[in-house]
Design a protein around this nucleic acid. Sequence first.
DNA 1: TAGGATTGCAA
DNA 2: TATTGCAATCCTA
Length: 482
Amino acid sequence: MSAQIYDTLLWEYIQNPWDRWLSLDKIAERKFNYEKKSFDSLVKQQKLSDFWEVDLEKASKYSAEDVYITNKLFLQQKENKVIDDKVLKEIEIPLIKVLENIEITWVKIYRDRLKELWIIFENEIIRLSNSIYKEVDEEFNISSPKQVWYILFEKLWLPRWKKTKTWYSVNSEVLESLAKEYAIAQKIIDYRHFSKLNSTYINWLLELLDDKDFLHTSYNQAVTTTWRLSSTNPNLQNIPSWDWIASEIRSAFISRFKNWKIMSFDYSQVEIRLLAIMSEDENLINFFKEWFDIHKKTAELIWTTDRKVAKAVNFWVIYWISWFWLSKMINISVAQANDYIKKFFIHYPWVKKYLEETIEFCEKNWYVETIFWRKRFIKWINDSNKIIKKAAEREAINMPIQWTSADIIKISMNKVFDFLNNSDLKSKLIMQVHDELVFDVFPWEEEKLKEWVSDIMENILKNKPIKLIVDNNIWNNWKEAK
DNA sequence: TAGGATTGCAA
DNA sequence: TATTGCAATCCTA
């Protein structure tokens, strides 16, 4: 028999995900107007090195306070009957064990590969720096926005147009537009690119590796306002993947089993599939029953051959961004953007209806909810300020889709974990990156793993007209698995 | 030394 | 003039 697990902090987080880094101290103050004695006042302020040095009587009082408040909180939550909350019981609580398991499993890194990349990138940084110095006949710190600003706009007098709070912006958008005419802008872009890779990723990863070349990430279950997970030390959820050079960093993520493999499973176009399921749009559902490439289909519907444009339109539908933003993103006129969207909605009338009804529902009830019972209040939905109201509408439309996809991956993690535990497989779940699960595959297990994990992930939603689709790849490292 | 400002990576 | 994160560097207070 296994013990029942309950978590007062997770309960608070589910109700209210806006407080960054919830703590018992914060909750005690807010709920019971009770000021707990702080850890710092016992340890740091007394100049002690750690808790074990604290006087026994003080230490026991402090500890008793923790227990007292936790219990008080637990009783209050039980009183509210939310102890039976399905989200807590069926998703978040079981996930604790899964995350614990991932954290103690670790990820194997090919240290020499990282070092090799570091040298390649460092050489590029030096080459670019020298070339830039030569061009302006002066040495300066290219990493400093202020100095770049000075060189570009006060020394070379390049055209400037976008402001930050304190000076003219020199971000990549500005540099990209300058790069069309001025070579130096492109060099600064490249410099930043490589120095980003070394300073943010490679240095940090090398620093965090243990002596057996394993990485020990922490996953946070109660941080984001969208109920997704986040990770730190390192953040494994923002390792480059799009850029062809940068994604080389992923080639250092390898199997712990000698000469064996990494397998990844990621939900394919999960948000637009969820839109089809939630809106019950017949045309969109029928499309997904027969075809897979929604971007191609959208391109056809709005009479374009440009896949990028189609992608942006699909993106627009899910995120409900402004026409202005859409037109800017794909470099077309606002009228043209408007026309694309009209064409899209003619073919998917129920999507349009669903989006409008979601907003109406929210206006009436002040909240939106997902297929997994999560609810959230949107207090600005009836605001008289149009800009604020628009933002609230975007949230009302986008959030149910985003939250549902966060729930889906969490549920699949729970199920996959149970499956691995109840099998004799030795492969390990090592990472979660929002809509992707990554496994370290034990020799000869790939067929079974592929079949079972795909099946579990694709069938999280029951009794829906279409399944979710999972793309699966197996390779020697994480880069190739992408 | 702490923290704001700027920048950029992921989903 | 989409959202949510984590983290780096520079630079001022």
